[in-house]
Amino acid sequence: MPLPIDVDAIVQLQADAVDQWHRDPIANPYSDFMQLVCQQHEHNYRLWHQEDIARAKDVSDAEIAQVKRNIDDLNQKRNDWIEKLDDSITLMLAQHGVETTEGAPINTETSGSAIDRLSIMSLRLYHYEEQLERDDASDAHRELVTQRIALCQQQQGDLSNSLKELLVDLFAGRKAHRTYRQMKMYNDPTLNPYLYAAQKLRAG
């Protein structure tokens, strides 16, 4: 059975989107599973650039506070969409009538989490390659960046291959698939001690 998920196409989507979004407004022209991949990638793209601002020294405390809230929100969305990717794979497995072998092992990382890591790697590669184009970069800087790009490309290839192998095992029923709920506590006013204590003070 041909795999319904093309890992090479995912890696290409992520690379193309990062390049396009640095020049044009963010867009998501995809459908079905690839639309989810692109949306999850967008949250990482926005998160990356908010984290750049958070490390700046020339912005006000008020701006940093807002950036921190943006980071919390985007990180929540990033994790929510990892779950959506894994839920979509659960649906695909059911649609293809995959029966998992009894006692089949579960991978330590879900497919959605691996796609998230590939998304971050595409961002890292883009921004490292950007460093090679700097007019003020020294030869030593370019050499270091070139070495890191090679390492990132190796890691991207290894992760892509591992994800392909995992998907083959999942759709052959040799491994079990499960969505792991992130269950973040810090954004939940009923679970974050500071938030529910402050809420109680306001109510009192």
Rank of each mutant, 00 (worst) to 15 (best):
1 M>Y: 14
1 M>Q: 14
1 M>T: 07
1 M>G: 07
7 V>Q: 02
9 A>M: 13
10 I>D: 01
11 V>G: 00
11 V>Q: 03
12 Q>K: 15
18 V>N: 09
20 Q>I: 15
23 R>V: 06
30 Y>W: 14
39 Q>C: 06
40 Q>V: 05
44 N>M: 10
45 Y>G: 02
45 Y>N: 02
48 W>D: 08
48 W>E: 09
49 H>I: 01
50 Q>K: 10
50 Q>T: 03
51 E>L: 09
51 E>W: 03
52 D>N: 11
52 D>R: 09
54 A>E: 08
56 A>W: 05
56 A>K: 14
56 A>Y: 03
57 K>H: 12
64 I>F: 06
66 Q>W: 03
68 K>P: 01
70 N>S: 11
71 I>M: 04
80 D>A: 12
80 D>Y: 06
80 D>H: 10
80 D>E: 13
85 L>H: 02
85 L>K: 00
86 D>E: 08
92 M>A: 03
94 A>S: 13
94 A>F: 08
96 H>I: 03
96 H>C: 05
103 G>I: 07
103 G>M: 12
105 P>Q: 04
109 E>V: 09
114 A>W: 05
115 I>V: 11
117 R>Q: 12
119 S>V: 02
119 S>T: 07
124 R>K: 15
127 H>G: 05
135 D>H: 05
135 D>Y: 06
135 D>F: 06
136 D>P: 00
136 D>Y: 04
136 D>G: 02
137 A>H: 02
138 S>G: 07
141 H>S: 13
144 L>V: 13
145 V>H: 05
148 R>K: 14
149 I>P: 00
150 A>T: 11
150 A>W: 08
154 Q>Y: 11
154 Q>E: 15
156 Q>N: 12
156 Q>V: 07
156 Q>S: 14
158 D>V: 13
159 L>F: 04
163 L>P: 00
163 L>A: 03
164 K>C: 04
169 D>K: 15
171 F>G: 01
172 A>M: 11
172 A>W: 05
175 K>T: 09
176 A>F: 03
177 H>K: 00
179 T>Q: 08
179 T>W: 05
183 M>F: 14
184 K>C: 00
185 M>V: 08
186 Y>A: 10
190 T>W: 09
191 L>W: 07
193 P>F: 05
196 Y>T: 08
197 A>V: 06
197 A>M: 07
198 A>E: 09
199 Q>F: 07
199 Q>H: 10
199 Q>L: 12
